[in-house]
C-alpha cells in the first residue's frame, strides 16, 4: 500500500544499495543515531518529556512523584489492557471490545457477590467470563474469518448490553472493606495498580522480545501467510492473545470496582479510545508487524502526564476529549510516516 513512499524513503537515505529483504538489515546500514532517532518510541519519549515540562510550567504542584503516581491509578487500568492490545495489534488484529469486557466481567463479579457467593469465587467467575468473551471474539475472527475491527464493534455493543441486562441502571456496591480502595494501598511506596502495571509491562516485554512465541507474533503480523508456511500456529497464538485480552480486561474491571467501591454497567464507557490511543501513541503500526511494549508503556505515562497536567491546570475534563482525539490522529499519522520511511 505504501510502496511508493517507501522507495522514496530508500533513495533518500544511503541504503539504496538494492533490495533489503528484512527491515532489520535495512536498519543496520544506517548510522547508529538515525537508527535510534527513527524509532517511534523515541517520539513518544520526547513527547513525554515535553508534556512533563509543560505540565510543570502550568502548575508548581505537578512535579511531585507521589501526586503523579496517585493520579496514575485511574489510567493504569486502561494501560494494563493496552499492553495486551499491543500484542494483538502487532499480530495484525485489533479488538475494540475490552472496555465493554471490563464492564461485563465486573458486573458478573458484582452480581455474583451480591448473590452471596464468596468474593474469591466471584473474582474467579469474573476472570472466566473475561476469558469466555475473549474466546468468543477469537472464534468470530479466527474460525469465521470476520474482520476483527468490525466484529469487535458488534461484540462491544453486545457485551455492554449484557452488562446492562445483568446490572440494570443501578450501581452495585457493598464490597468488604479489604476489597475497596486498592488505589490507596501501596507496595514499596507505589500504589498497587501501578505496581501491577509495571509487572505486566516487564512480563509482556520479556515475552514479546525474548520468547519464540513472542517473536512469532511479529512474524504473524508482518505476513500471516508466510508465518503459516513457516509452521507457526497462527490461529492458536491469536486465540491465546484474544483470551489474554479478555482476562486482562476482567482484572482491570476489578481494579476499577475496587477503586470506585461500586460497579455500574457504564464502567469505562469510551475506554476503547484511550486504549487504542496508548497503543498508537507508543508507535505500534496499525497494520501489524511492528511495535513494542516499551512504546505502549511510555505512551501510557504520556497520557497520565497530559491528563493530570490538564487537571492541575484546571482545564475542563471535556476539553481533554479534544486532546485525546487529536493525539490519536496525530500519532497514527506520525507512526505511519515513520514506518513508510523505514520499511523494506
Amino acid at each position: 500500500m505504501t510502496d511508493k513512499i517507501s522507495t522514496e524513503g530508500l533513495s533518500a537515505s544511503q541504503t539504496a544499495t538494492g533490495e533489503q529483504p528484512a527491515p532489520k538489515g535495512a536498519a543496520e546500514l544506517r548510522p547508529m543515531w538515525q537508527v535510534i532517532l527513527i524509532r517511534p518510541e523515541v517520539m513518544t519519549f520526547v513527547l513525554l518529556l515535553i508534556a512533563f515540562a509543560v505540565a510543570t510550567q502550568l502548575s508548581p504542584f505537578f512535579a511531585d512523584a507521589t501526586f503523579i503516581l496517585e493520579s496514575a491509578t485511574f489510567y493504569v487500568e486502561y494501560a494494563i489492557i493496552a499492553l495486551v492490545l499491543t500484542l494483538i495489534i502487532i499480530a495484525g488484529e485489533i479488538d475494540l471490545s475490552p472496555a465493554a469486557m471490563m464492564a461485563f466481567s465486573a458486573c458478573v463479579f458484582a452480581a455474583l457477590f451480591k448473590l452471596g457467593l464468596p468474593i474469591g469465587l466471584a473474582m474467579v467467575a469474573s476472570v472466566i467470563t473475561g476469558a469466555l468473551m475473549g474466546i468468543f471474539n477469537g472464534i468470530l475472527v479466527l474460525r469465521f474469518k470476520l474482520p476483527s475491527i468490525i466484529v469487535t464493534i458488534g461484540t462491544l455493543t453486545l457485551y455492554r448490553g449484557l452488562a446492562q441486562v445483568l446490572a440494570g441502571d443501578r450501581s452495585i456496591s457493598g464490597f468488604p472493606t479489604w476489597f475497596i480502595g486498592i488505589d490507596w494501598k501501596y507496595w514499596f511506596g507505589v500504589p498497587i495498580p501501578v505496581v501491577l502495571f509495571l509487572i505486566a509491562t516487564v512480563v509482556l516485554a520479556v515475552f514479546l522480545a525474548f520468547t519464540v512465541t513472542g517473536r512469532q507474533i511479529y512474524q504473524i503480523g508482518t505476513s500471516p501467510e508466510a508465518a503459516r508456511h513457516a509452521g507457526i500456529r497462527v490461529q492458536r497464538i491469536k486465540m491465546g492473545l484474544f483470551v489474554l485480552l479478555g482476562v486482562a480486561s476482567s482484572f482491570a474491571g476489578m481494579l476499577t470496582a475496587s477503586r470506585l467501591a461500586s460497579v455500574r454497567y457504564d464502567m469505562a464507557t469510551g475506554g476503547e479510545l484511550q486504549m487504542v490511543l496508548m497503543v498508537m501513541l507508543g508507535g505500534t503500526y496499525i497494520f501489524g508487524g511492528r511495535g513494542s511494549i516499551a512504546g505502549t508503556f511510555l505512551a501510557a505515562w504520556l497520557l497520565i502526564v497530559i491528563a493530570t497536567g490538564m487537571n492541575v491546570a484546571n482545564i475542563q475534563i471535556t476539553s481533554q476529549l479534544i486532546v485525546m482525539g487529536f493525539l490519536l490522529i496525530v500519532s497514527i499519522i506520525a507512526t505511519n510516516a515513520i514506518y513508510a520511511r523505514t520499511q523494506r
Binding site: M1, T2, L96, I149, I150, G270, E272, L273, V276, L277, M280, I286, F287, L321, I322, M324, G325, F326, L328, I329, I332, I333, N336
Partner: peptide, 14 residues
C-alpha cells in the same frame, strides 16, 4: 491513507 475506522474513532472523541 489511514484506516477510516481509527481516524473516525479519533474524531468521535475530537
Amino acid at each position: 491513507r489511514l484506516p477510516s475506522i481509527i481516524v473516525t474513532l479519533g474524531t468521535l472523541s475530537l
